[in-house]
Every structure is written in structure tokens, then in C-alpha cells.
């Protein structure tokens, strides 16, 4: 056993050193400076996308940077909905130009730099953990400011022009309903609340609004919040062209209120101030009621995503207790769906 482990550890060690050496070479050229990469720690990410926190020592360089990357050989992400890191970098830069708070993209990796696909960006200070943002005293002022700030940020994102970008697919509300309905039916599950909600959505679908750039995962957990409120919009990999109401409703989904159900917008506020700020900044003029259909769709989407994550346990692809357990969270979305449909019955 030891004989086997020893060379593996050595290989791992030299990989780490080689990784840091390459990081240092790239960053020295970016900053035109003899800086040193002090540490590189992997923060999170799945099998194909990694997020690294890098600390630097050098004159005129930031102390910390974030690297988002897909190592070589894993450029094509298994999630076909994701747009890929170079596109993500392009959209973050476009969002910055629209005044949306985002990390600054510092450098997009080139193939000959030997680090795979990805980009360096500035590290924005703040909190992403929803339960802390919703409960801690130091975010009280932020919670008050967030609805309007989110409205303004969404108006900025939705105004980004991306004509003809082949990475961005059009996905309307009904496209998404069909997509998730097909997955649900392919699992063979019989959960009549999902059937009822899907039939209701199809029969009550609103006319689509003109397609805009949609963030696709705009909710607590994917935004950086500081004591003043919205510090940065993160996680751009699910961007697509679609209906602006999708982004607003996703943040309203009860699954993303993290227990603070009485506040429709993310558990921290009402949706009306978001809609006011959104319209004031050039977005469509929308009413809270126009978000209802999309909120039902959002619960369906999250419920089917939970089913899919459980499928990865059932198929043996991921044997973790977390993947098994998430199958028993589908009932959360069933509870929300029947509550929402009951409201629609009285509407």
C-alpha cells in the first residue's frame, strides 16, 4: 500500500508546484512585475469547474485574486446549459460596462499558458451565505437596500446587447417547461402535483416578452453582499437569452427564501421595490402578479433539478449521502407548488 501511495503523493506535490509556477508566470506577465504567488487554495466547484483563491506578494499587485478555471481536458462541461468560462468572462465585462456590480475580469487564460480555460478576476469582499445575509444584524441595512439594488442590476444585465453570440441559446418560459417536463417524465416518477402544475403552466402561459440576456441563476447564494447591500453578481455560467421575468421570479422562489417565507424577494424584501427600480432603470414595467406564473415554473425547475441530483445517486454515478438526501427535498417544491396553485385558484 505504501509503495503505491508514495509515488502518487510525489506526483501530486509536483503538480501543485507546477500549477503555482504557471500561475506565477502568467500573473507576472499580466502585471509586468516580479510578483510571487504565495498560496493557491481551491475554494469550491464541481469536477469540471474550479474556483481558486490566490494570494500574491508584489509591488502594485492586489493581495488576493480569484481564478475560475476548467483544467485542460475538461473544457466541455457536462452541463450543456453552461456557456463556458471564456463566454462568462466576456459577459462579466459587458455587465461591468453597464454599471452592474461584478468582479473585474483581470485576464482571460490563453491556450498556450497551460492552465486550461478560465479567467482571473478581482476578489470582492462580502458574504454569499444566504442564512447569514438574512439573519445577521450587520446586514440589516443591506437587506433594506437589496431589493432596489437587485432591480437596478437586473435592468443592467437585461440591457446587455449580445446579438449573434452563438454560445447564448434562446430559452423561453415554454421552452423551459418542455425541457423540465421531458426530464420529469423520463424518470418515470408519478408525482401528481408536478403534473397539475405543468398542465396549469401550459394552459396559462403568458405571451413571451422580447428576449433579453438573462442571468439564469440570480438568487441569494450567487450574489456577494456587504453591509451596504449588493457588492457583486456572481455565477454567470447559466446565462441565456430569455424572458426578463425569469430572473425576477427565480429570486422569489420559496426554495431561495431560505426559511424567511414571508418576504417574497429572496427572504429579505418585497418584489415591488425591485420592480420599481427595474422599470426606473429602463427595464420593462411589470407588476408583482406578472411574476406568479414564473414563480410556479421556478419551483418546477428546482424540483426537477433535485430529482436529477437524486438520479445521479440512483444510477450509481454519485454515491454520496447528499445526493441521496436531496431526493427527499423534492417534496419541498411539491408543498410550494400546491400552495401556489391554491392561490391561483382563488385569484
Amino acid at each position: 500500500m505504501e509503495k503505491l501511495c508514495f509515488p502518487l503523493n510525489v506526483a501530486k506535490m509536483s503538480d501543485t508546484q507546477e500549477f503555482r509556477r504557471r500561475l506565477q508566470t502568467v500573473l507576472r506577465s499580466v502585471y509586468d512585475n516580479g510578483l510571487t504567488v504565495e498560496t493557491a487554495n481551491r475554494l469550491s466547484g464541481g469536477a469540471s469547474q474550479e474556483t481558486w483563491l490566490i494570494t500574491l506578494e508584489g509591488n502594485g499587485t492586489p493581495e488576493t485574486l480569484i481564478l475560475r478555471r476548467a483544467p485542460e481536458g475538461t473544457e466541455s462541461t457536462p452541463d450543456s446549459a453552461a456557456i463556458g468560462l471564456p463566454n462568462e468572462a466576456k459577459l462579466i465585462r459587458a455587465a461591468e460596462a453597464e454599471g452592474v456590480p461584478v468582479p473585474s475580469v483581470i485576464h482571460v487564460l490563453e491556450p498556450d499558458e497551460g492552465l486550461g480555460e478560465g479567467f482571473f478576476m478581482s476578489r470582492v469582499e462580502g458574504e454569499t451565505i444566504a442564512r447569514r445575509i438574512l439573519r445577521n444584524d450587520e446586514y440589516a441595512q443591506a437587506r433594506g437596500a437589496l431589493p432596489a439594488q437587485c432591480g437596478k442590476a437586473l435592468a443592467g444585465i437585461h440591457s446587455i446587447r449580445v446579438d449573434g453570440d452563438p454560445a447564448l441559446k434562446v430559452s423561453t418560459g415554454l421552452d423551459q417547461l418542455t425541457y423540465y417536463e421531458d426530464i420529469y417524465q423520463s424518470t418515470g416518477a408519478c408525482r401528481p402535483i408536478f403534473d397539475l402544475a405543468m398542465v396549469w403552466l401550459r394552459e396559462n402561459a403568458p405571451a413571451p416578452l422580447e428576449a433579453v440576456l438573462v442571468h439564469g441563476d440570480f438568487r441569494l447564494g450567487n450574489i456577494m453582499v456587504d453591509e451596504q447591500g449588493l457588492a457583486a453578481v456572481l455565477d454567470w455560467e447559466l446565462c441565456h437569452l430569455g424572458d426578463p421575468r425569469e430572473d425576477i421570479a427565480w429570486m422569489c422562489t420559496n426554495s431561495w427564501r431560505f426559511g424567511q417565507s414571508d418576504k417574497r424577494l429572496g427572504g429579505f424584501g418585497d418584489v415591488e421595490p425591485l420592480l420599481e427600480a427595474y422599470a426606473a432603470m429602463g427595464g420593462q414595467s411589470l407588476t408583482a402578479k406578472e411574476i406568479d406564473w414564473w414563480e410556479v415554473l421556478s419551483s418546477i425547475k428546482w424540483g426537477v433539478m433535485c430529482m436529477l441530483m437524486y438520479e445521479s445517486f440512483r444510477s450509481g454515478a454519485d454515491p454520496s449521502v447528499e445526493r441521496a438526501a436531496i431526493g427527499r427535498r423534492v417534496s419541498e417544491t411539491e408543498m410550494d407548488l400546491i400552495n401556489l396553485l391554491e392561490e391561483q385558484r382563488h385569484a
Binding site: G259, E332, M335, I338, N339, E342
Partner: peptide, 26 residues
């Protein structure tokens, strides 16, 4: 139908995730 589905969802969530906010709402 709505009553039946709601009672079924309540019974299920009480087993699966009894602290979920949607149960209190229901």
C-alpha cells in the same frame, strides 16, 4: 383534488423536511 394533493404534500413534507417554511405556510 386540491385538498387531496395538499394533504398528501403535508404528510410527505412532515416526514421529509418538517422544518421547511412551505409547511408552515400550508
Amino acid at each position: 383534488l386540491v385538498n387531496h394533493l395538499k394533504m398528501t404534500a403535508i404528510a410527505q413534507i412532515k416526514v421529509d423536511q418538517p422544518t421547511y417554511s412551505g409547511l408552515a405556510n400550508a
